[in-house]
């Protein structure tokens, strides 16, 4: 019997003999992965929604006087120095007047007595549409207001701040559920393996006495942990997929679902979550056997 067959035989024998403890661990891993992946899915979709946002993210910088050509270049440099932007537009007083008049449509005659340059010139900054930009927008605004010749900076403050708070909350939840996932998987698996090791203390002693190699004793436990991680996380992801489809079907008519396109994780992300969970569980098992067997 070669080494690999021997190790796999041992692994499945262990799993079979301690199936009740294994089942509990599997359920815990499945739930941890489900909780983490659920919040992570919301997070990625919100991030995606953030990218779909349009001009609401525009920052308007009002200036006290029309900037000359070289001054415009100076502003451009300072803005780009802070962060990447999609585009920067300079709006002169006259252009602003034209836009305002166009907005007033039939009522544009109210502007007749007003001078053509009564509106301040401005710079419109369109940041790159990403969540990072969104979270930095307040700082960006504070920076812009400190530039020389700037009267005021305006952006969809209320909306952006609410969105920002929501995203911040989501980040915390994802972080916490991620930590929970790491703790539960490694701890639960390490504990299950420890219980298995304790229940098989005599067998392990005997194996050492008859000359079993370190790998022969240890690998089955390592594989057992990895297998628990794999099956548990695969089940968790499958449960999330079913839940996602059910929610999508159930709330298909809801306005929020029509506003944004909600998608499930791409395949590589699913694989990454399963692989990471398997590795965490294998790690838990590894540390447990190392401590217990002192190999």
């Amino acid at each position: 019997m070669n080494f690999i067959i021997a190790v796999f035989t041992q692994t499945f024998r262990n799993l079979f003999q301690t199936w009740s403890a294994q089942l509990l661990t599997l359920i815990t891993i499945t739930l941890s992965v489900l909780i983490f992946a659920f919040f992570y899915l919301i997070y990625t979709n919100v991030q995606h929604a953030g990218q779909q946002l349009d001009d609401d993210l525009r920052l308007v910088i009002y200036l006290d006087e029309e900037p000359a050509e070289e001054m415009q270049e100076e502003y451009r440099k300072k803005i780009v120095k802070f962060d990447k932007v999609e585009r920067i537009e300079f709006v002169s007083s006259k252009e602003a007047y034209g836009r305002f008049a166009a907005q007033l449509e039939e009522d544009r005659d109210v502007l007749e007595d007003m001078p053509r340059d009564f509106l301040p010139p401005s710079i419109e900054v369109y940041p790159v549409r990403s969540l990072d930009t969104l979270t930095k927008i307040k700082r960006f605004s504070d920076y812009l207001v400190s530039l020389p010749g700037v009267l005021k900076v305006q952006y969809g403050r209320e909306w952006v701040e609410r969105f920002y708070t929501f995203v911040k909350l989501l980040r915390i939840i994802v972080f916490l559920s991620g930590s929970l996932l790491i703790l539960t998987t490694t701890f639960m698996v390490a504990n299950t393996i420890r219980l298995t090791l304790l229940s098989r203390k005599d067998e392990l002693e005997l194996l050492r006495l008859v000359g079993a190699s370190t790998h022969y004793i240890r690998l089955p436990f390592f594989l057992e942990g990895a297998l628990q991680g794999f099956i548990g996380s695969a089940a968790g992801m499958a449960a999330l997929f079913l839940l996602f489809n059910w929610i999508k079907l159930r709330f298909a008519v809801s306005s929020i679902f029509q506003l944004f396109e909600f998608t499930f994780f791409p395949f590589p992300v699913v694989i990454a979550i399963i692989v990471i969970s398997s590795l965490l569980c294998a790690g838990g098992s590894f540390s447990s056997t190392r401590k217990f067997l002192q190999l």
Binding site: A6, T9, Q17, E205, L206, L207, R208, V210, G211
Partner: peptide, 30 residues
């Protein structure tokens, strides 16, 4: 070296929940 030593222990050191065949097989499986 231990694989080349067979030890019949005074307290037997059998695994009670395993069959006779499995107990004997341990020494060869390693």
């Amino acid at each position: 070296l231990r694989r080349n030593i067979g030890f019949a222990f005074q307290d037997f050191k059998l695994l009670p929940d395993k069959t006779v065949a499995q107990n004997i097989a341990v020494a060869m499986e390693v």
